[in-house]
Amino acid sequence: MAFDTPNGTRGARQPGHSRIEQWGNRMMVDRIRRRGDRSGTKLVLVTVGSKTGEERMNPVRWFPAGGDARFIVASASGAAKNPAWYGNIRAHPDRVRIEYAGQRIDVVPEQLHGAERAAAWAQITAAADGFAKYERITDREIPVIRLTPRQNGA
């Protein structure tokens, strides 16, 4: 379950810093939490800030990972740095949940490595080829994370 992907040295601009992007993300988070999204491929990832200890909510695209599990990708649109939520998961892996359409599900995050990551990455890029572009833009390996619903008591 090692969340050990270092930041890179080159890549796109880190998303989410402008006020318009932040406003858009807040609106998307509210909509997904209440009604879901039209395509059914987005969820709200809820983490606890690694430095602040406050809840953070981010809209992310998900991909099926078998059963009730889902894959998410820490692409940051191909930025050199991992998204902040990746560091939050690393700091507090036991306090992660997903929300969509009125549901709140505690999850266990697991970063994939090696052949398991390669298989998931092939599935993800076949479904959404924009992620392959992100990988070409940056020199870091883009983390793929499996979110599995937490069992009671786990």
Rank of each mutant, 00 (worst) to 15 (best):
D139P: 01
Q14R: 15
G66S: 11
D94F: 06
G49L: 08
W121G: 00
L45T: 02
A118N: 12
D94A: 15
A91T: 06
Q123V: 02
G87Q: 08
I105E: 11
R146Y: 04
N152T: 09
G40E: 12
R35F: 12
D4N: 15
V108M: 13
G36Q: 04
N25L: 14
G102N: 09
G87F: 09
P15W: 02
T9E: 06
V107C: 07
G16M: 10
S18A: 02
M57A: 14
E99Q: 13
D129I: 14
G153C: 14
A76Y: 00
G130K: 14
R61N: 10
F3D: 02
A12W: 07
R136K: 15
G11T: 04
W62Q: 11
A115D: 10
N152W: 11
E141A: 08
D30A: 15
V144W: 00
R26E: 13
H92E: 04
R140Q: 02
R35L: 10
E21G: 08
R70W: 12
A118T: 14
I72S: 05
D37R: 07
F71T: 04
E141N: 03
T125Q: 10
T5N: 10
H113I: 03
R90D: 11
F63V: 06
M1C: 13
N82F: 04
A126D: 14
F71Y: 15
A118S: 14
D68I: 12
R146D: 07
P64E: 06
G114A: 01
M57I: 04
R136A: 15
G11F: 04
T41V: 14
A132W: 07
D106G: 14
P149V: 03
N7E: 08
E21Y: 01
A154L: 10
P143M: 07
Q151M: 07
R140K: 10
A119P: 04
G16P: 05
L112S: 00
